[in-house]
């Protein structure tokens, strides 16, 4: 498996795990409160920091196993895969963000708007890596 496909798998798994944890926390807190839980800035910052640290550790571990591939710049096919995946991920990102805007316009629920916009950022990144894996496997 090429190095960049491995990193895409690793990042997708980290981000899916992170998103699942975030959603679990928000849903649990909302159930306990009986309404949409407000954003907790400290939790969001801690979440981002943990994701970044986990990504750096995993990337370093993968790079140590194939240092030559890790140092090589992306070739033309890998650049096309990155571009296509990023483009498609943009469409995925829009869906929860628009849902959040619609929900806010109807229900004036700013907390839900925050969570849906944050979810759209997470889903956009997840989709980017998932599409990369798909394109590496099925061809550009």
């Amino acid at each position: 498996m090429p190095f960049r496909e491995k990193t895409a798998w690793a990042m997708a798994l980290i981000l899916i795990g992170g998103a699942a944890f975030y959603l679990y926390m928000i849903i649990s807190a909302s159930r306990a409160l009986g309404q949409t839980a407000p954003p907790i800035v400290g939790f969001v910052i801690a979440y981002v920091v943990v994701i970044v640290i986990a990504s750096v550790i995993l990337m370093a571990a993968l790079a140590a196993t194939s240092p030559r591939e890790a140092n090589a710049p992306a070739d033309e096919r890998e650049k096309i895969i990155g571009d296509k995946a990023g483009n498609w991920a943009g469409y995925v990102m829009v869906v929860p963000a628009l849902g959040g805007l619609w929900h806010y316009a109807v229900n004036m629920d700013g907390n839900m708007l925050f969570h849906l916009v944050f979810l759209s950022l997470m889903l956009g990144q997840i989709a980017d890596y998932v599409f990369q894996v798909v394109l590496y496997r099925r061809g550009v």
């Binding site: 591939e69 090589a72 070739d75 033309e76 890998e78 061809g139 550009v140």
Partner: peptide, 22 residues
């Protein structure tokens, strides 16, 4: 030619059309 081995594999299998330069 300055690409990865996976790109050569993809070209040989007809899964990727190389650029004119490649």
């Amino acid at each position: 030619i300055g690409v990865t081995r996976q790109t050569i594999i993809a070209i040989e299998l007809g899964k990727y059309s190389p650029s004119l330069e490649s």
